[in-house]
Computed example of a mutant assay.
Amino acid sequence: MTDRIAVLIPCYNEEITIAKVVDDFKRSLPEAAIYVYDNNSTDATAEIARAHGAIVKREPRQGKGNVVRQMFRDIEADYYLMVDGDDTYPAEAARELLAPLIAGEADMTVGDRLSNGSYGEENDRAFHGFGNDLVRWLIKFIYGYAFDDVMTGYRAFNRTFVKTMPVLSSGFQIETELSIHAVDKRWRIVDVPIEYRDRPEGSESKLSTFEDGAKVLMAIASLFRESKPFAFFGWIAFVFFALGLIVGVPVVLEFFQTGLVPKFPSTVLATGLVSCGALAITAGAILDTVAKSHRKMWELEVYRVQQESMHKHA
């Protein structure tokens, strides 16, 4: 591999594992530059990483999404491999993740912990598997693409993907955002099965199952609204129309039978609900036009970045 490869390791209080992670990737990818971004650690993460040969930078804005945003802005490479600093992902799989990118067969590869069952065997934290399945189902339902593992922290990207990825998340929603961006923008995605291992004793996860899970669901809703506004507001309109019919149909039937409208409050409520549905449809149609315009501009930016990368290698 003659192309430049950058290994990106966002870290917060990983002094127990970071030395092994850096050493493993230096051994598996000796040609790669290894970057550790320290996110306000209160332990010796940065010092240990630097002592083991990593390029250490600091990101003062707390949250994994903030770290990834700055990494994507700062680092210039042809291929990027992103991995957590908790020693749960095997460095030995790095070349398998990079191979489809280098062959021009993928724009993003995903380290899949689920299909071979290793995540279920190693991870004993309640509801993590359920949360991953729920997010996978939502993405499949909304976008029609079935990820094998949507929440994995082990991924690889080519330069065009990284330099045209608008990172909006601040925290652990970043994995979901990367997945939805890849599907919505029709990037080529390849799932690569990997052997997951749980954190070593003394190393603690920073992920809050319920708090971060709620943030992930909110991120999915927000990205759905932005990327597919007509479908998003169409569902809202459907709910309003359905409620309007439930309330209004008895009023209409009674009017045809008696010629009277005795349930005036129900009439007003039904009219209001149907009007809200019509407004939702109108908002969706307008925002859909805006979204398509933004998509065209983004496609042109992709062309520009690709041409820039080609000129670098010419």
Score class of each variant (00 low, 15 high):
residue 4 R to A: 07
residue 7 V to P: 00
residue 11 C to S: 10
residue 13 N to Q: 09
residue 13 N to D: 13
residue 14 E to L: 02
residue 16 I to A: 09
residue 16 I to H: 01
residue 16 I to P: 00
residue 17 T to G: 00
residue 21 V to I: 14
residue 26 K to T: 09
residue 27 R to F: 06
residue 28 S to K: 12
residue 28 S to T: 12
residue 30 P to T: 09
residue 32 A to K: 07
residue 34 I to Y: 02
residue 35 Y to A: 04
residue 41 S to L: 03
residue 42 T to H: 13
residue 43 D to N: 15
residue 51 A to Y: 11
residue 54 A to D: 04
residue 57 K to G: 14
residue 59 E to M: 14
residue 62 Q to W: 11
residue 73 R to Q: 15
residue 73 R to I: 10
residue 75 I to H: 15
residue 77 A to Q: 05
residue 82 M to V: 15
residue 87 D to A: 09
residue 91 A to H: 10
residue 100 P to K: 14
residue 101 L to E: 10
residue 106 A to C: 06
residue 107 D to I: 06
residue 107 D to S: 11
residue 107 D to G: 10
residue 111 G to R: 09
residue 120 G to D: 14
residue 123 N to V: 05
residue 124 D to F: 08
residue 125 R to V: 07
residue 127 F to H: 07
residue 128 H to W: 02
residue 128 H to E: 05
residue 130 F to C: 10
residue 130 F to R: 05
residue 134 L to E: 04
residue 134 L to N: 04
residue 139 I to Q: 06
residue 140 K to N: 06
residue 149 D to I: 09
residue 149 D to P: 06
residue 154 Y to H: 07
residue 159 R to P: 04
residue 162 V to F: 14
residue 164 T to R: 13
residue 167 V to Y: 15
residue 170 S to C: 15
residue 171 G to N: 11
residue 177 E to I: 12
residue 182 A to I: 11
residue 183 V to N: 13
residue 184 D to V: 07
residue 184 D to I: 04
residue 187 W to E: 11
residue 192 V to R: 00
residue 194 I to Q: 02
residue 196 Y to H: 02
residue 200 P to I: 13
residue 205 S to I: 15
residue 206 K to A: 09
residue 208 S to H: 07
residue 208 S to A: 10
residue 210 F to L: 14
residue 213 G to L: 08
residue 214 A to I: 13
residue 219 A to V: 02
residue 219 A to F: 05
residue 221 A to L: 04
residue 221 A to M: 12
residue 226 E to G: 14
residue 227 S to D: 08
residue 227 S to H: 08
residue 229 P to L: 12
residue 233 F to M: 06
residue 233 F to H: 09
residue 234 G to Q: 01
residue 236 I to A: 04
residue 241 F to P: 00
residue 242 A to W: 03
residue 242 A to L: 03
residue 245 L to A: 12
residue 247 V to W: 00
residue 248 G to I: 01
residue 249 V to A: 13
residue 253 L to R: 02
residue 256 F to P: 07
residue 259 G to H: 08
residue 262 P to F: 05
residue 264 F to K: 11
residue 266 S to E: 04
residue 272 G to N: 02
residue 276 C to V: 06
residue 278 A to I: 00
residue 278 A to C: 03
residue 285 A to S: 04
residue 286 I to E: 01
residue 293 S to C: 11
residue 295 R to W: 04
residue 298 W to K: 01
residue 300 L to Y: 15
residue 302 V to N: 02
residue 302 V to P: 00
residue 307 Q to C: 07
residue 308 E to I: 15
residue 310 M to P: 05
residue 310 M to T: 12
residue 311 H to C: 09
